[in-house]
Design a binder for these strands. Sequence first.
RNA 1: GGCCUCGUAGCUCAGCGGAUAGAGCAACCGCCUCCUAAGCGGUAGGUCAUAGGUUCGACUCCUAUCGGGGCCGCCA
Length: 584
Amino acid sequence: MIHQSGKPPLMNIFAEIRTVVIAALDAMVSEGVLPSDLSFDNVAVEPPRDAAHGDMATNAAMVLAKPASKAPRAIAEALVAKLTENAQIEMAEVAGPGFINLRLNPSVWAAVVEHALSAGDGFGRSTRGTGTKVNVEYVSANPTGPLHVGHARGAVFGDALASLLDFAGYDVTREYYINDGGAQVDVLARSVYLRYLEAHGQEVAFEDGTYPGDYLKPVGAALKAKVGDAFIDKGEQFWLAEVRDFSTEAMMGLIREDLAAIGVKMDRFYSEKSLYDTGRIEDAIETLKQNGLIYRGTLEPPKGKVPEDWEPREQTLFRSTAYGDDVDRPIMKSDGSWTYFAPDIAYHWDKISRGYDALIDVFGADHGGYVKRMKAAVAALSESKVSLDIKLTQLVKLYKDGEPFKMSKRAGTFVTLRDVVDQVGSDVARFVMLTRKNDAPLDFDFAKVTEQSKDNAVFYVQYAHARVRSVMRKAADMGVDAPDAPLLEDEAEFALARKIAEFPRLIEIAARNNEPHRVAFYLYDLASDFHALWNKGNEKTALRFLQEGDNAATAAKIALPRAVGVVISNGLSILGVTPVEEMR
RNA sequence: GGCCUCGUAGCUCAGCGGAUAGAGCAACCGCCUCCUAAGCGGUAGGUCAUAGGUUCGACUCCUAUCGGGGCCGCCA
């Protein structure tokens, strides 16, 4: 969805200052100080690591020194002279090997705070994705049972990524691919059939290759309610197809409920089955064939560890090596049926033909070996015009009071998404899972994540928001309903305003890298700066947001915390976490 | 054997080609007559796995090696 609003122009102060720097460089070119064929692409304007260096720094002189054949300091000094002409820039000086440190006019930071207030839920939004259609496919768990914790991580990650891209201006579709076409749904059907017989009072045994989980009992009972005894003592050919459809639908019902419990809402569910017997797989393969990418052949056995029963077989192969894969991949089994790769190709072909500019797949880490061939397929089908980024989410290791928590599907001790949400809540589960890069393993300790302390980033950020809301309520009691133009005096206030100013830039970086975890870490930093200022108010009453008996001063002071509240709220909405009004 | 991924403080982890590599936990010393102490300040803790390379500049990019995890033709 593209955000439509009459809000003021988006404000990214770092991008603005960069355009000032570029303009100064352009002027230097027209004056003959710099040659005319320079690229400014690598010129960056960034927050300095050390605040003592100023508000911002640019590497322009160092980046341009070599292509311009000039000493970095010479460029830097000429650039400094130009930059100081700008009203927003109070001071510019050359430092270190050729950095230019900038100090902005203090009024700029007050303007940023005001902007955040007026932009409200639009603050931080970016136009970088405008006009770009992106499809994010995530979860896509087999419809054979409830979602477990691993799925939860993929669900939360994919959802936050989609929200992040939406916030950055992309036209985003959230999509779930239902694997309802393979052998696993036959297994599901047979398992449900056993529960159906059980519901009719028969003794049943769950052999290897069936799903023994209790969650299928109500499905068996529901099947009984629907068809009575019609399927008893009948062969598979009589009931399999119907039971499969019935069971798959029941499982998708479960999964939708699980997704809802953790706050995930898909725009579209796409059925694998719909690709079969409709000619769509054949269409996709034919497209590849026309490009000479499909052939009959025999693969070499894998080097090193060769399976015992290896024997060469001729298969239909996709020449994925033409697009960077290590070996060509089979799309058809030796018995003439499709491998799982074939419908996946057709599915991505369908996504491409729906007009997306970029595709993102969120897979579990165990699908790592699948990345290259999928990218190869998308490149081949789209003539490399559509990008595919595949994000892998690593395992979730569960702990209870520091003790590892073993999951076993067979023993029925696997932890479901619902278990996690029931115990810790959606907000905590989401934030914890997002305070980690997607490709790093995640330790999830039930005891620790429910602990309400600094140890737990969720509560730390929530607490900051609750404090903001508390201040606003108290201000309203004093008769101050809305913030006035902010008055920034203390270094702690400027630090906080600068942090707020970084939010739009953070969004750009996070969206560029498809890394929603950056938002979570940023919010933690912002909360930290806020708590620091709060405590400074304990010692220095002039820094308190509420100035007793002085409504005018209070109105000016609450602008900053109000803006913090806006940013936390915007950031948490990307993560799908509720900003709380108070802590209880 | 090949491919993917990770390796940063005692522990858990951030880190956008940029300056003296940062948080939290644990340890130690402090801060509530005061807007929520679910908070804040300080001390201490590092050969960024190793060795090369590219670069004005490398935790970041490239190559190799070591170590952990994952994957590797008729499972999706």
